[in-house]
């Protein structure tokens, strides 16, 4: 198999097609237009459906309708469009629908900008919409991983009957890298809830209104139980943990720059580890817990004003010092910028 040179956004679309995505609904927004454009070319050829909606609000509700019938479907957008979808995210979670949503995020708040930003970390991991719910959130760091995690998102969303999000940003979305479009095994799960017409079976209902005494509490407890079960899907990339005094943490495309800085530091003999959460929800608490128990400190680097750092703090539970290196969106840092901060951090001791 020959690698192809594609953008991260295109890799996401290809990953979705590889996973058997049948329907795409979306509304144009930079920097993710490569996804709908690729889907508009490819889906009809494969007997699937591409539909440009009149808004993100319409798109996400078309997605709700499509996945309710048991077919694999997705939408993609960027930050402001994702905000507009928030109410329906809550419904998707409440109806336990395996919808896949991609956020190629950009700078905010407001119209912000179209540069790379990780300012939607809270929005993605805390739910964005109303009520107690979560999306399963995956964040790739390379074009190859964008392809593979998107396919994985389809599988996990069906496994848990649970909406899933790919959270990436303009940097990875627009960056070209070689992609090996290898065949992926995407497991199927029984869809005994799908609305396909009540032929030879009782009618099915997908609803989220529970007014009977105790009903809503039971419903919430069921969802929470599922979120706890999802913890086993937590994934992180951990490097150089042996003998480390400081663990530098980052997710998504920024982690590439951070990894380079960590390697620079290690070449100079600094005992630095690298931790990259791949699932943002469930958050991979384990490596953080283990490192903190060994007295390792943390430096959390993010392209926002400091969001993931809260999850790191929750994971280490006060056992270790956690420092935030928050880089609000505008320019990307150079590895040297991060290297200098690592050095400063280590010298503090």
């Amino acid at each position: 198999m020959k690698p192809v040179l594609v953008k991260g956004s295109e890799a996401i679309a290809l990953g979705a097609l590889e996973a058997g995505c049948r329907c795409y609904f979306g509304y144009p927004i930079t920097p993710q237009n490569e996804i709908p454009e690729l889907m508009a070319r490819e889906l009809p050829k494969r007997g699937g459906v591409f539909l440009q909606a009149e808004s993100e609000l319409a798109a996400v509700n078309m997605l709700l309708g499509a996945v309710s019938t048991g077919v694999r479907a997705m939408t993609s957008s960027s930050s402001p469009g994702i905000s507009l979808m928030a109410e329906t995210f809550s419904y998707l979670a409440a109806l336990e629908l395996p919808a896949v949503v991609v956020n190629v995020s950009r700078g905010g708040p407001g119209l912000g900008g179209i540069e790379a930003s990780q300012g939607d970390y809270f929005q993605a991991t805390r739910g964005a919409g109303h009520g107690d719910y979560h999306f399963l959130v995956l964040s790739p760091a390379s074009v190859q991983e964008a392809y593979e995690l998107t396919a994985k998102a389809f599988e996990l969303s069906e496994k848990y009957r649970q909406p899933a999000m790919i959270l990436t940003d303009a940097l990875l979305g627009q960056m070209k890298e070689p992609l090996l479009p290898r065949r992926l095994r995407v497991r199927e799960y029984p869809k005994d809830w799908a609305l396909t017409g009540a032929r030879g079976r009782p009618a099915r209902v997908l609803k989220s209104l529970f007014l009977g005494p105790g009903e809503l509490r039971a419903r919430n407890e069921l969802l929470q139980k599922k979120y706890r079960a999802m913890r086993r899907e937590a994934r992180a990339e951990v490097l150089y943990a042996e003998g480390a005094e400081l663990a530098v943490c980052a997710f998504g495309s920024l982690s590439r720059i951070v990894k380079e800085a960590v390697e620079m530091a290690r070449k100079k003999g600094y005992p630095v580890a690298f931790v990259r959460p791949i699932t943002l929800f469930p958050f991979p608490e384990k490596p953080f817990r283990e490192l903190s128990l060994r007295g390792v400190r943390f430096l959390v680097v993010e392209l926002n004003c400091g969001q993931m750092v809260e999850d790191v703090k929750l994971s280490v539970c006060g056992r270790a010092e956690v420092e935030s290196f928050a880089l609000p969106p505008s320019d990307l840092p150079a590895p040297e910028d991060i290297y200098r901060r690592i050095r400063r951090c280590l010298r503090k001791r």
């Binding site: 419904y91 609305l195 009540a198 997908l206």
Partner: peptide, 8 residues
């Protein structure tokens, strides 16, 4: 007695 889905 037919399949029904709730929408926002």
């Amino acid at each position: 007695d037919v399949d029904i889905c709730e929408a926002p």
